[in-house]
């Protein structure tokens, strides 16, 4: 089972260059999860103790109200609040379709990262990259570029 997880994680570009040992280490904190369409599996304000690496389907992130602020699809990492106190979700995550994902246990990962800073940096780099891309996209979106016409 654990070995299958490693292959599934390896298939995602974010982790495809992780060393065998690190991948195994990471997989030790992982498990397969499935959500039905419409299921809200992360709720704003609740304890953030997990991350999700989406394998299939579409996840909607709802920051406030009912509208979807952004979606996450295959290869995207959802949730990094487990890294920072007070470890609380600041969005809702809703399965817009049936979703398959790899759930990473926050406490487990945190402990491994703390005890092995080299491994910790490998993991942190990947989370940071996701955050960096998300920030880039958010900046572009903040400009509301389509408000003007283009003929």
């Amino acid at each position: 089972m654990t070995e299958g997880l490693e292959a599934l994680i390896r298939r995602q570009p974010l982790f495809d260059d992780l060393s065998e040992a690190d991948l195994k280490h990471l997989a030790g904190c992982a498990r397969n999860v499935k959500f039905d369409a419409g299921e809200i599996f992360v709720r704003h304000g609740e304890e953030a103790d997990r991350s999700f690496l989406v394998r299939a389907g579409r996840v909607g992130l709802v920051v406030h109200g009912r509208d979807i602020a952004e979606t996450a699809e295959e290869g995207d990492l959802v949730g990094w609040s487990w890294l920072f106190p007070p470890y609380r979700w600041h969005f809702d995550a809703k399965a817009l379709t049936a979703v398959r994902a790899i759930e990473l246990d926050g406490a487990c990962l945190r402990a491994k990262c703390e005890s092995d800073p080299r491994f910790g940096f490998e993991i942190a780099k990947r989370f940071l990259y996701q955050a960096h891309r998300r920030l880039e996209h958010t900046r572009l979106r903040a400009m509301d570029v389509y408000k003007g016409p283009l003929t």
Partner: peptide, 21 residues
């Protein structure tokens, strides 16, 4: 789309995100 609505089930995000995928 940049801004999702309740009846939109497609991706929400900028075109560069779609290009990267």
């Amino acid at each position: 789309v940049d801004q999702g609505t309740e009846d939109w089930f497609g991706p929400v995000g900028v075109v560069t995100r779609s290009l990267a995928r």
